[in-house]
Design a protein around this nucleic acid. Structure first.
Length: 114
DNA sequence: AAAATGACTGATG
DNA sequence: GCATCAGCCATTT
């Protein structure tokens, strides 16, 4: 296969986050082999083709909060998507101890195409 | 080329 | 827990 572009790597990682779990922008960047590029992850999510049906709502910031501002359409959309799969959200805050994805690194590494 | 912009982060008070 | 801040980095002005 052709080498995956940075955006494709990010999309691949996001696609692996299990239903009912969340992961921070910075963590997604780390797993994609792009440390220090948390902001780039948010950009990659915005630019993701709709047909990928990416679970972008499972990506939140390192403080365990939805990064959209309260009372925006995007905030409410993400909050509903999270709740619909059993994730508790209070005023934009998610408990990382309960819902953060902690992948088995050995298994994860072996399933990466890069 | 320089400055501004963010779906970010970690440290600090 | 919340607000600031400086540092960060690709992209756009």
């Amino acid at each position: 296969m052709n080498p995956l572009s940075p955006k494709q790597k990010i999309w691949f990682i996001v696609n692996m986050i299990p239903e009912g779990n969340v992961l921070a922008y910075g963590k997604v960047a780390d797993l994609a082999g792009l440390p220090g590029r948390a902001r780039y992850v948010s950009r990659a999510l915005q630019e993701a083709p709709p047909h990928l049906n990416l679970a972008w709502h499972r990506v939140i910031n390192s403080q365990g909060k939805i990064s959209f501002k309260l009372n925006t359409i995007n905030f409410q959309n993400q909050q509903e998507r999270l709740r619909s799969e059993g994730i508790e959200v209070n005023k934009g805050k998610i408990s990382l101890s309960k819902f953060e994805w902690k992948p088995d690194m050995a298994t994860l590494v072996l399933s990466l195409p890069f």
